[in-house]
């Protein structure tokens, strides 16, 4: 018996989300009086996993897995879960983890709860709290299968140090046939993705037109943030679809979300509610976003954003 955690890496290093799921897996293992095993795919230095409570790392090394393949990764993780006799498997909610989780659930005949926000309320029966209705509510889900899969929402648990040895072993598994092959990947390597970002700078129709996004991008640069936008902005073609956030776009669970010229329609708020700190800049004091935000400035983005950028630059220069 153990808790298995799938720890994703990128360019040979474990992602922050992996350290968060490792911290969470340790929390679950403590509740159940067991240890934490991580499964990594072509993982690099595994020492950071030890820092966050992982006792043992199975490193699945296979050059066929250099490109992500959901079915093959699910097979590899399932084999690790069986080898370890894992009763709980923890994953992040990255695009790839969400892709493979239901396949893994079928492989392991395991019940799966996605978007989980906290440690189990109880281990037997196994009950977890998750978001539902696109962040308009929570639901407590009981998983009744022998093996349980938990998809932990980003920034829901945080990082908790808990030193362990993290002894690493090579691991191999039958990966089945690859029915889906990656032909090409189109990813801006110099930009922070919304999924990974700690800070997201988002703008709406109040920006009037795509030619005015320079100041939004500048703010994102200064803060090391990702850029995002409201739905009409991407529908109008002012910004790429990948930036559309909200109920029908990408969910945002960043530490800080800055909304500029966005009214705060219910469908927009639903997708960004999991962000910890929300800031709004809007000319209209009646804009619904003010009811959802922590901090706000009533004013014209075309005056405030350039001022804010100057001051943020100075702040960053004196605080780094």
């Amino acid at each position: 018996m153990s808790v298995l955690v799938y720890t994703e890496s990128e360019n040979g290093a474990f992602k922050k989300a992996s350290l968060e799921v490792a911290s969470y897996a340790k929390g679950v293992a403590d509740m159940m009086g067991t240890s934490v095993t991580a499964i990594a795919v072509n993982g690099g230095d595994t020492a950071p996993l030890g820092t966050y409570g992982v006792d043992k790392v199975l490193n699945l090394k296979d050059s066929k897995l250099d490109a992500f393949n959901a079915a093959a990764y699910a097979k590899g993780i399932a084999a690790a879960a069986k080898a370890e006799g894992a009763t709980v498997v923890v994953l992040s909610q990255s695009a790839n983890a969400k892709y493979l989780a239901p396949l893994l659930a079928v492989e392991l005949e395991a019940g799966y709860a996605s978007n989980v926000v906290a440690l189990p309320e109880s281990a037997a029966p196994f009950k977890v709290k998750r978001t539902a209705f696109t962040n308009k509510a929570f639901n407590i889900t009981e998983i009744s299968t022998d093996v349980k899969i938990v998809g932990l929402g980003k920034n829901a648990y945080g990082l908790k140090e808990n030193s362990a040895a993290a002894a690493t072993e090579d691991f191999s598994a039958d990966l089945g046939t690859f029915g889906v092959e990656v032909a090409s990947v189109d990813k801006a390597t110099d930009k922070v993705s919304i999924a990974d970002a700690e800070i997201v700078v988002s703008a709406g129709r109040g920006m009037k037109g795509p030619e005015n996004w320079g100041m939004i991008e500048e703010m994102a640069d200064i803060l090391g943030a990702a850029t995002a936008c409201s739905k009409p902005v991407s529908d109008l073609g002012w910004r790429p679809h990948g930036e559309h956030v909200g109920q029908t776009g990408k969910p945002v669970a960043s530490n800080l979300y800055i909304a500029i010229g966005i009214s705060g329609a219910i469908q927009h708020l639903a997708g960004i509610n999991s962000s910890k700190v929300k800031v709004v800049i809007n000319t209209d004091p009646e804009a619904p976003f003010f009811k959802a935000a922590d901090y706000g400035i009533v004013g014209d983005a075309f005056e405030i954003v350039p001022q804010l950028n100057e001051k943020l630059k100075a702040f960053k220069a004196s605080n780094s």
Binding site: F68, N96, V180, E181, V182, A183, S184, K187, A188, S193
Partner: peptide, 10 residues
């Protein structure tokens, strides 16, 4: 995908 897109054949 997170931060971009990917084309696959299947």
């Amino acid at each position: 995908i997170d931060g971009g897109k990917e084309t696959v054949t299947t």
